[in-house]
Nucleic acid binder design. Structure first.
Lengths: 202, 202
DNA sequence: TCGATACGAACCGGTACCGTATCGAAATCC
DNA sequence: GGATTTCGATACGGTACCGGTTCGTATCGA
């Protein structure tokens, strides 16, 4: 938490220590409310306090305002990139594309779309967003780079464009729900195979 | 407008007619505020009225509430799909991909990201969104279908997946600003060529 | 000119949330 | 036990917007 780190190494302050339960309950309540459909700005401190079973003062004692609390909440969503087997580019990419928009915490899937407008507005939110997806992007970049080095993919490949081709369609499906009826389970394979081989006849 | 159509064929109601200037000013003010960064829900009737130089009553006389006004405003953004030359699949797709996220009204580009959370929540907003991009999607679908018929593209091509591969990367670049520094002008060609030919070496 | 309606502006009571303050109880250290 | 701090709860004044209403004025048809 932004202003709690000092207490860790401080010379043991007197009085009742801050409740770790409250910390978690507050962060959790904020993420729950977001996942249930609240927009970032419609989210109120009072609603978070009620949901967490906590007094408002307990929140204001920890964070200066809603934005700081929210950024801390988003920071807790950081997760590692999924492990890839490394047997083939194709299989690795299927795993990584399948992981787009997925997360250990299922609330992330509902929360990410709500962040889209914020990310374009606030650089702090953009940073939080990129911290969440950063490890996955790095993993995919590495898979592609190695495949180029091995001669499996075109030498003149623009890696960033390739990553966009692979991840963006999955993202629009999972977050924007372009085709709500479509079965998502087969989609990663379809995307990877089509991108690898291209649309043209050979 | 939702409740103004009746006046068109009505037997000429007495009294002062409603101001067309006010209609346009209200819709315009709403779109302006959205384009300037207001979120859909932070947008208030009072702010719209002030911006339009109009009394609140003038708005409430036309629409029952904010949602109806907003949907009407979004409806005015519908535009035709760009013309394609039809010389080659490649050239047509470059035109259509280049048009993703672009619009006759430049405000659309700022407004669309703000709609993302709403589209997942309200079916009315989803309809408005799809009405805006519908003509473009239809045009691209047609270009792809014809190319398959001519034997230029794979016969087993999943057209919807192909459209996602082409449009989603452009959309994430234009609306989510995944790579803010990248030059967007060359991107459509890059995307189309890469998708058509695939990543693999031949 | 007159009746009817729309206009912009201002005001109303109600609601929600802000950020702060205060309460008695609870938890920790000395 | 006493000092100190946090706890949940509640209350406070302030602000913003809601949806509706009422002004005096402006603009139409008859």
């Amino acid at each position: 938490m932004s202003d709690m780190t000092s207490t860790a190494d401080a010379p043991r302050s007197p009085g009742r220590p801050r409740s770790t339960r409250a910390d978690e309950a507050i962060i959790d309540a904020a993420l729950d409310l977001l996942a249930e459909g609240s927009t970032v700005e419609s989210l109120s401190i009072e609603a978070i306090a009620n949901r967490a079973g906590v007094g408002k003062a307990t929140i204001y004692r920890r964070w200066p305002g809603k934005d700081a609390l929210l950024l801390d909440a988003l920071r807790t969503l950081k997760g590692p990139a999924p492990r890839t087997a490394g047997r083939s580019v194709r299989d690795d990419l299927v795993v990584l594309v399948g992981a787009v928009g997925q997360h250990a915490d299922p609330r992330v899937r509902k929360i990410m779309p709500c962040l889209v407008p914020e990310v374009n507005r606030s650089s702090a939110h953009r940073q939080a967003y990129e911290a969440i997806i950063g490890p996955r992007r790095a993993a995919m970049r590495e898979v592609l780079r190695r495949a180029v080095d091995r001669g499996e993919l075109r030498a003149d490949l623009d890696i960033e464009v390739a990553m966009a081709l692979l991840t963006a369609p999955m993202l629009t499906q999972r977050m924007l729900r372009w085709h709500p009826e479509r079965d998502e389970r087969l989609l990663p394979e379809r995307i990877v195979d089509t991108v690898l081989d291209g649309l043209r006849v050979r």
